[in-house]
Design a protein around this nucleic acid. Structure first.
Lengths: 213, 213
DNA sequence: TGGTGTGAATCCTTTCACAGCC
DNA sequence: GGCTGTGAAAGGATTCACACCA
């Protein structure tokens, strides 16, 4: 496989999301133009992105929704269910524990850990909060390869080191800090406050340099 | 002001975050090389990014941490506190209500709304959940320009339409759906499951095409 | 006609390399 | 020596435009 532009990989997820929505409204096929329009991309962009991964289209017809969904899921690795663990049972962590969206996408939250002894042992639905010293064994027993971190920024680097040592290869990081990892561990970060800051920038710009005449 | 690459705007937030961390460890100045290394960028990238916004550096010295923080905050619009409202008091919404990170960055959560009558009236700390019909007046009274949406994907478009009509100009969207807005309304979206999907892709690639000999 | 796949051209972003300053 | 700011060069990503197919 050739090498694929980073932004294209990101867009594949958006295509899939949109296709699933089309499927719910009983659309059988979709053209690159329609798909692009729904997401704010050009038709050429859609076709180019998809052909990085193979030839999925049918000339004169477009893309068959069901077929393309299956293909994209295989590419994204969500054609099966991945076990995932969560570190940190604070406010955000507990919200993630009860978030249904993960399962829908092919992820199953299997265990939750927290360093605070006061939290260990508490139950939330199916899940009991476990102490950190159980982490290594848990990762091995359940063959866990992905983890979500929702701890303080001070604790985050230590946690990711532990995870890497235990064999985790992908980390979704909600702590507002930069993590150093070995090259075979992927980190995807989401900083909630930073997102608001970006909005603030756009709006600040608008008032400084409003759209010209 | 000239026009600035999208990715550069995003990195400005990372620079600021890193600078604040440097400030806590009593660093007075930092070079583009140091700042870049901490975040995984080249020194040239750092300098180029910063000069899109002005000349902040001191040749032979580097950048003064305190000074640069102030300047970047002004650029990002977070040198003051923005009032923000939240729509949706489900699991994620409630976690966001108690998230301290927003205030630290210059945002203040002023009100929370939910369409579910069973939730309206419930209190969480300072905040009481309000009915949707109070939204329009609230936006006007508090001069709200930014909102966070954490509702179901089905409800999201309706909510953003209401917000736009009320005068909100920036929306942070946690619903896994694409929103259509007038061009003067900015939307920043965070899809939690989509982030995991991206991780899954990277790890899937790894097993299909491992790093070559 | 309506649509895909794709090389070529364009556009945008990053990196290089060096003048100038402390 | 160390560092910034910046034009020029290189590298990537997007769009164009057209061959080809149903």
């Amino acid at each position: 496989m050739q090498d694929i532009p980073g932004p294209a990989v990101y867009r594949i997820s958006f295509y899939l999301r949109q296709l699933e929505s089309l499927q719910r409204t009983a659309h059988e096929t979709v053209s690159s133009k329609q798909l692009g329009k729904a997401l704010g991309y050009t038709d050429a962009q859609v076709r180019k992105d998809l052909t990085y991964f193979g030839q999925f289209g049918h000339p004169g017809v477009g893309y068959r929704v069901e077929e393309l969904i299956q293909r994209l899921k295989k590419i994204l690795g969500t054609d099966r269910v991945w076990p995932v663990i969560l570190i940190g049972a604070g406010n955000l962590g507990r919200a993630l524990m009860s978030y249904k969206g993960f399962l829908r996408k092919g992820f199953s939250l299997e265990a939750v850990f927290d360093a605070d002894p006061a939290k260990v042992g508490r139950r939330f639905g199916e899940l009991e909060i476990l102490p950190m010293d159980k982490l290594h064994d848990c990762v091995h027993e359940l063959q866990v390869r992905m983890a979500i971190i929702a701890v303080t920024p001070e604790a985050a680097q230590g946690v990711v080191d532990l995870l890497a040592k235990a064999g985790v290869r992908g980390v979704l990081n909600f702590s507002p800090t930069n993590l150093k990892t070995p090259p075979d561990v992927f980190v995807q970060s989401v900083d909630l406050a930073l997102q608001l800051e970006q909005l603030s920038f756009r709006m600040n710009m608008e008032s400084v340099a409003p759209s010209e005449p």
